[in-house]
Amino acid sequence: MTGVLRVLRSVLLTLGLPAVILLAWWFTSAGSTTFYNPPLSAILGTFRETWFSAPLGESRLAVDVVPSVLRLLAGYGIALVAGIALGVAIGSSRALRAFAEPVLEFFRAIPPPVLVPVLMLFLGIGDTMKIVVIAIGCLWPVLLNTVEGVRGLDPVLRDTARAYRLGLVATLRHLVLRGASPQIVTGARQALSIGIILMVISEMFAAKDGLGFSIVQFQRGFAIPEMWSGVILLGVVGVLLSLVFRAVSHAVLRWYLGYRQSQHGGA
């Protein structure tokens, strides 16, 4: 009984606020005759035919949303690999850190959207430009957090790995990457939200497809309910991606939650 109650409570807590907001939007906009602020019922009414109109292969979902998400994943993936690799190298070497830090600080301070017009000059307006923009924007949080994570590795663990003659590969795999994984995940989480922002922005400047492109196109064509439905879909995509992220990071950091509890709570 108490178990059921607990589940019920957590469902209420999770879905309560979104439900309240949606209901508030629904009722306050119900009688709206303002052109730019259509009733929520109208927005949801257009949602299906805007994004999922059959055949599915030619729907906006396939033509606009999927390319957007693929570019996001490509850029994000590149940023993860490059950020972790560079972060491990910089975090492991004090000399490299002193050498690279000023430059890193400089690049981190540049807001990534500013790169879009610059990169357009070099890479055009195709997929490459967008993937590069996303990759560059996502790189910094991953890189800087990885550096911190590697720097913060326990020297006793490092000594242990050395004393038992762990080779380079084993040290990287079993000590460095695992030990830095809490910080790497933090960086990856920040990078994901930056990536979603850049996915949209890179399409708003210039594009021939994409979710951000569609929203701008609807806005320019005064298809206001469709525009709003695009914003909602964008939010849904973001939530789905963060759910996937949560599941993956939970699997990677299963040990970490209990470990942290044992460090602070018990003993």
């Binding site: 006793v156 663990l157 000594d159 242990t160 695992r178 994984s181 970490y256 470990y259 003993a267």
Partner: peptide, 11 residues
């Protein structure tokens, strides 16, 4: 080593 809590890989 003395620091048993820190010489074992917690993961």
């Amino acid at each position: 080593l003395q620091e048993y809590g820190r010489s074992l890989f917690p993961w």
